[in-house]
Design a protein around this nucleic acid. Structure first.
Lengths: 213, 213
DNA sequence: TCCACCATCGGGGACGCCCCTGATTCGGCG
DNA sequence: CGCCGAATCAGGGGCGTCCCCGATGGTGGA
């Protein structure tokens, strides 16, 4: 049996989850308690010590992240359950320590499965969110937006830009590309002007934000 | 029915997977083909168009990532199946586009479940890996390792370090902290010496790698 | 009390960064 | 052919970075 506590500010929704989890005969989920805001959630979780907490992201008193923050990292695993699939909600919740994130469109059997998996230590994400999380993890956001600016650079300027952004000194870039320091300076002037930046430090941040390193 | 192609360089292991997947009566998985290296894998996947590819990470001819690279992003989903749970393998595979990563210690029924989930668009990770992936996603890798070096800095040095790493000029740091440029220089000397770095650019990379910005 | 450490500052120097004004060569295009 | 952009380079100047040499207080422990 996997023990859970349900945290959501809507009593009706909690009742629905409870009904779904208990609907199937031989369900592997045992509901130890419920809570409707941050304070009661912390109290209920501390008291019942469930293996998994079903946690609403938008919760009065600071949101689900606040519950995780107050409880810290003990052995309870959190499964976020939200109507929202917004990037900031997902990121914030995962940063807070949740082991999974599913939307409320989930069916009863799927939720049971997700709970069991989270209890086992698996990471569980809804299909829509899986793509998002993996994209973020792979660091490939905003690849398209880069090209507009980047296309305005010549091939040589891009080479110089890449090395400078990695922290190479002008002298080192010159040696690497078999050109003089003065030529590197010329290219860098063009790069900074075209990208509307004013120093190599800004360039480093610019490239880093776009993951061009 | 979920259609799959098995890619692994060990024939014995492929036979084992095939046996496990077909063992259960009424299995929802249909095996369309097998492959033992990058070239045959690309050919088999192009020919059979499976919904899911079971992909060995360590594959002759460039590894599983090479298979995904050559096939690009079409509608096939990849589930990495590896003996390794090393960080670089997991990161590389996810960056390559895999939708899941499970170790070969997985049982038959669990593998069936994972395949179905990946076909549905879920992200699937083994327990050991889930923690790692989420940690990386939350941007909290090596938090412990940072402190060793970081603890050797004084409070004032850390303040200066943080601003410099963000690209502030000495003059700007001085204004921000209400001290003279010379004092900033002194602190920076200490920071660079204690962290065994030699320039503000290396410091920027150092801080960026540890996500201290 | 004395010493270590921290934070604060200064002078001066070597070198890197960024900009300016030039210059040449080469290839493409009207 | 003449023009233009790309790529190459030089000189010089202003400022930033990082180091050396110092100095002054304050704080806390041996």
């Amino acid at each position: 049996m996997t023990t859970v506590v349900i945290v959501d500010d809507h009593a009706m929704f909690r009742a629905g989850v409870r009904a779904e989890l208990q609907a199937q005969p031989g369900t592997p989920v045992e509901i130890l308690g419920e809570a409707e805001d941050v304070a009661t959630a912390v109290a209920a979780i501390t008291q019942h010590r469930p293996e998994v907490v079903l946690l609403d992201v938008h919760l009065p008193g600071g949101g689900g992240a606040e519950v995780m923050r107050q409880l810290g990292t003990h052995d309870t695993r959190f499964l976020a359950l939200s109507v929202s699939d917004a990037a900031e909600d997902v990121i914030g919740t995962i940063r807070g320590g949740a082991r999974g994130y599913v939307t409320k469109t989930i069916t009863g059997p799927e939720l049971v499965d997700a709970i069991v998996r989270v209890a086992d230590g698996d990471a569980v994400f809804s299909p829509r969110l899986a793509g998002f999380v993996l994209d973020a993890f792979a660091g490939s956001i905003d690849v398209a937006a880069v090209d507009e600016d980047l296309d305005r650079l010549t091939e040589r300027e891009r080479e110089v830009m890449r090395l400078i952004a990695r922290g190479y000194a002008y002298k080192e870039v010159a040696k690497e590309l078999f050109i003089s320091v003065k030529t590197v300076e010329t290219h860098m002037s063009s790069v900074l002007r075209k990208l509307q930046l004013s120093s190599r430090h800004e360039l480093t941040r610019w490239a880093s934000d776009r993951r061009l390193l």
